[in-house]
Computed example of a mutant assay.
Amino acid sequence: MSIYHKEYRELQQIKLAVDCIIFGFNNNKLELLLIRRGFEPEIGKWSLIGSFVGKNEDLDNAANRILYDLSGLENIYMEQVKAFGNAKRDPSGHVVSITYSAMVLKSKYCEEKINQHDANWFPIDDLPEMVFDHNDMVDCAISRLRRRVRNFPIAFNLLPQKFTLPQLQSLYEGILNEPIDKRNFRRKVAQMEYLVKLEEKDMSESRKGAYYYRFDEDLYKLKQNFNL
């Protein structure tokens, strides 16, 4: 047996997993969905939702399966973040984890499935200690999200189909964790032809009300210019 054949057989003992970092938005705060781990090692601690990749299963399919099992949602915006491969990251053995981040509209997920997994939402500025290197995974995903939301319209996945400009600004302030100048924000938004102003108003916050807008994805694909 050649040394390369031996190494190949040893590498087959490494397990491959996917962990999903699921973001939501509530009360002007970016939140993270965590589950209470129900088995050893580190039973009872908070954890990202994850699973081993099945035989003949693609990574993206595994991530979508995990998200559906937890939330009941399909066709959700999701992107691969990073591989975590420290040989000692999981005390049960050598497990390489590929992290995915997803953004879900909290009003649409299945409450029953969430309860089945003993899951809970946490503001990202008040996260509990998690198992293994999951805190590092989340930090990495948040940093990536904050970079990308300025140049890509991915944050709209956290809003309902119609929204007001104050809601949009609150969302960006929640993600970036910093105040945004209202006048500059409105000036940039006014240049976005793919933000379509509707005739309907939200009258819940003031007598004057705030017009609703919607994000036109098809129009954005034609323009491909986004900067907030």
Rank of each mutant, 00 (worst) to 15 (best):
I124S: 10
L67A: 06
N120F: 14
E112S: 15
P166A: 12
R187P: 05
R37Q: 13
Q13P: 07
N28C: 02
Y100A: 13
R36H: 09
Y213P: 01
Y4K: 13
D139M: 02
K162E: 01
D202T: 02
K108D: 12
Y220R: 04
L67N: 07
R146A: 04
L222R: 08
M103L: 14
I14M: 10
L145K: 02
R150N: 03
N157E: 10
F23V: 08
F25A: 01
V138Q: 04
N177T: 00
M103D: 04
F185I: 08
K188Y: 11
D125Y: 10
I35T: 09
I3M: 14
V189E: 03
F185R: 05
I43P: 00
L127P: 02
E79Y: 10
D118R: 14
P166E: 12
F156T: 01
E112V: 15
D118C: 09
P123L: 08
F185N: 10
P128G: 13
V104E: 06
F39I: 10
C140F: 01
N120R: 15
A141E: 05
R65S: 06
L105G: 08
R9K: 13
E40W: 04
Y220V: 03
D19H: 14
Q191N: 14
I14W: 11
L59C: 00
R150D: 01
F84D: 09
K88I: 13
P123M: 12
G38V: 08
E217Y: 02
Q80V: 09
R150H: 03
S92N: 03
I49L: 05
D19N: 15
D133M: 12
S71K: 00
P128K: 09
R148T: 07
G50C: 09
P166W: 09
S97V: 15
A17N: 12
N75K: 12
K106V: 09
I175Y: 01
A119V: 08
A17S: 15
H5Q: 15
